[in-house]
Design a binder for these strands. Structure first.
Lengths: 252, 252
DNA sequence: CTGCGGCCTCCCGCTACGTGAGGGTCAATC
DNA sequence: GATTGACCCTCACGTAGCGGGAGGCCGCAG
């Protein structure tokens, strides 16, 4: 029993060659082979294929997908939940792009020229380069800046992926605490603030409590950063600033 | 004046190598070079780059993008409009995927097993293979079937792209006529039906009026096909059937 | 026993870049 | 005016994710 390569390919709308490839690289090995060496795919194999295709559609590399699917303690429901979340983010991004296109159309009609930054705002999402440029203007020549430059220069794509993932988690933690009404100067919010500080210290530079407070101010004052928080929840940037200050006071 | 590779790369969130590549293949040549051979990008160059990145994001190959951007009589506004449309489609698809994930979660919770077809429904969008399998069951051994098999075997990806695009246009034409209240047995709807028939004859097999009427029935009776029309507009499948019948009567 | 579709394993090709190597350029600085 | 360091140049080879064909075995229909 089980399904042949051709059948599976037809179900999934992919080619036989693709299945061969996934077998080769070990991403999806059919659980059985016939006496003649034919690949036989079982139901669980189809399950896995579905997951693979989903994550692929969302832009993950095959290697990343293998890691995700093989990490221990990840049941199907977890994957479905995660996929749903990823899809929602992706949709959000595309909607932002659609809005940007509209914006460009308006500007074009009015004859208003766009600045280069405006033009590409939509791409780059979480652009470290842009961040770095900003950072230079603000803190050029400072210790923290030098440290950041030296350290980030050696980071690989995987590192960056891990960093942004971690940053996302912290952001979510802030958002959750905020949404559930935890006070900004309460333990929960302060703990998240501390995680935030640790994150920066770990990946960028020694973030003292003083510097951290400065960052908190910036998250409110600089619309660029504020937007990052405000688009998650209205008022979140202020909440984050309060939490950072409270956390700094706690450790003073 | 103008911008250097590095500056442009930072704006756009891409690498310098990517710009080099686009220069190499002629997709985006900087309009100037400095005396030392440095690339200098002008404002119109940035405009073009923005278009390139948009279409790239939407999954077009670089070659296709070059064709799109260089086709005569395509002004920027046209591109913006098209991009907006493409984005909306893409968003629609992702939303369908999100719905499917929810569906899978429900099924999982209820302990309902999914059939292989159900599992992959979301991918493949307009799956020709699935269509072919269905077709075999229905018309296996018939002339039309043989003809389709022989002809489609030689189609390239570009052909398929053209085919689905054409099919999409016909669908839109039906939808538009329907939405604007044109009667199903009126000239406008019948003309679209005739386009539909021509499309099939051109790409698959000689679609006689008799066969066409059979297809019309199927578009209503078979939920698989009906869904294709109904998700565009409620009642559209019936409308299409009527139009096809009227058109056949007109040519009888 | 002879097709004929489907399956197998190489293996080379393609796209869209990544990633150095080896070497000029340019503005600031010593 | 020489050095330094960021930035630029041109090769040129490497990689991911398959596409597609060659050459050959499998299995059933006629």
């Amino acid at each position: 029993m089980g399904y042949s390569v051709g059948q599976v390919a037809r179900f999934a709308g992919i080619t036989v060659r693709t299945l061969h490839h996934y077998d080769e690289i070990g991403l999806l090995r059919p659980s059985e082979r016939s006496a003649a060496g034919y690949r036989r795919y079982s139901e669980p194999d189809l399950d896995r294929l579905q997951q693979v295709l989903f994550y692929r559609e969302l832009g993950f590399s095959l290697e990343e997908i293998a890691v995700i699917l093989d990490e221990p303690g990840s049941d199907p429901v977890t994957h479905l939940r995660r996929q749903h979340e990823l899809l929602r983010r992706r949709i959000g991004r595309l909607e932002a792009m659609a809005a940007a296109v509209k914006h460009a159309m308006e500007a074009r009609k009015m004859g208003i020229p766009l600045t280069p930054e405006e033009r590409f705002e939509v791409f780059g999402d979480f652009d470290p380069a842009q961040f770095a440029e900003e950072a230079e203007e603000r803190w050029g020549g400072t210790d923290a800046f030098e440290q950041t430059r030296r350290r980030t220069a050696r980071y690989t794509r995987d590192d960056w992926r891990a960093i942004t993932a971690e940053a996302g988690e912290v952001l979510q933690a802030f958002a959750a605490a905020f949404a559930e009404g935890a006070p900004a100067d309460g333990e929960r919010a302060m703990d998240v603030a501390e995680r935030h500080r640790a994150h920066i210290t770990r990946w960028f530079y020694d973030c003292t409590y003083e510097i951290h407070k400065g960052l908190g101010e910036m998250y409110v004052d600089d619309p660029r950063f504020a937007a990052n928080y405000e688009r998650v929840a209205e008022g979140l940037s202020h909440y984050v600033r309060e939490a950072i200050h409270a956390n700094a006071a706690r450790h003073a």
